[in-house]
Design a binder for these strands. Structure first.
Lengths: 214, 214
DNA sequence: CAGTTATCGAACAAAGTGTTCGATAGCCAA
DNA sequence: TTGGCTATCGAACACTTTGTTCGATAACTG
């Protein structure tokens, strides 16, 4: 009775056969399933570039994707579910890019963010304007917070608990928020400076704060 | 034919008699109108504390407020309109508090934010969790950006254009994002440190960046 | 008090949501 | 190639929510 093999719907019940179990076991997914999901993701992304996210209906999506209504609900819980899963793919994409990059010795691999933003500018802007920005911000922030906390954990291992009186997670939140804010502002610019340049500004502020401006 | 005297629905057509014209001219508003609006604002805020913002319907609101359906739409365009206008009231509230405070010589009057957050913690948290966080973040960010840009404009008037190579609006975005991120994180904490303490951390990071942690 | 104006409330069309189910087409392994 | 399995289709459905309309009623203001 496999109903749609390999759907991550319920995070519990651990007998789902398709969930990329542990190691790199290819695990074949029915072509039809692949095609359907891809169509839906593509359709949503296209629509996001055309109208506000919160004005997009499930009907719009399945029309564009040319997929049956019931099929949609066989794959995703609702529109948000589709969107979030799509974002995760994006997140992975960025993470892969970041792996190559190796921003010299910067604390945050911030350049990757700006470069990824550069390449996907239209989509990002559409998302932020359309009411889907919440998800995106949260996702980005989680990435950065993890990044920074790891970094701080390494070099700050001597000062256990708090570094200079400021707990690592506060620092992480601070930097992540700053990063996302600068990023979204930069994405909205009409004639934006290149990613390397905005990254330099961010790094300067992150390292020395306002003091660097005197 | 005055249809609901003094409704800000259409920002154009400047003959609306109730719009607090320019100076401090009291301008009487029909008691019924005041009562209705107040009821609706109160109802929404109550509901926000009970369930996710995006799951609240207009029906819920008017039931709670004990107001007719048509009356609701006579006052507000929709749920978001009501919410945003409610936030503006909050924003004014905070701004008034901030006026008293005079955070010593800090660049941002950040303590006001943390104090205001302290007092309205439940409501803020509910908003951020419920999908209404977008509005709130934007509102807070606008406040801060204005605050910082003003500050920088004063002392940085000598360096016209960019201060130390970093444009003022980039600095403002950086600090505003950092502020809102730390604020929301702090609001979510179970046993949060007092506002003065979190404010110190923020100020330290804002002034000296990561360098201060060495 | 009299005239003005906001509110009520019921009814309405329209749009969207999420589900069901039998029939069909496509896939995969043997 | 075949046989069995399974994803898709698509139409129909009940349900919720939205935003509007309008005449009757109640409340406010001067």
């Amino acid at each position: 009775m496999p109903v749609l093999t390999g759907i991550p719907h319920d995070p519990e019940d651990g007998d789902s056969p398709m969930h990329q179990p542990n190691d790199a076991q290819p695990q074949k997914v029915d072509r039809r399933v692949q095609r359907t999901r891809q169509q839906l993701h593509r359709a949503l992304m296209e629509l996001i570039l055309e109208k506000r996210y919160d004005k997009i209906t499930v009907q719009d999506i399945i029309d564009r994707a040319d997929v049956g209504r019931s099929t949609f609900y066989a794959h995703f819980l609702d529109k948000n579910d589709l969107f979030e899963q799509g974002l995760q793919l994006l997140g992975q994409d960025m993470h892969d890019h970041a792996a190559d990059a190796h921003d010299e010795d910067h604390v945050v691999h911030s350049l990757s963010f700006f470069r990824h933003g550069q390449e996907n500018r239209d989509m990002y802007r559409a998302m932020f304007d359309g009411g889907g920005g919440d998800f995106l911000l949260e996702l980005g922030r989680r990435h950065i917070v993890a990044d920074i906390e790891e970094h701080l954990a390494q070099q700050g291992s001597s000062d256990r608990g708090g570094i200079g009186g400021t707990p690592p997670n506060v620092v992480a939140q601070f930097m992540a928020g700053a990063m996302m804010s600068v990023l979204t502002w930069w994405l909205r610019e009409d004639r934006p400076v290149p990613p390397e340049e905005i990254n330099e500004m961010y790094q300067k502020l992150a390292m020395s704060g306002l003091q660097s401006l005197r």
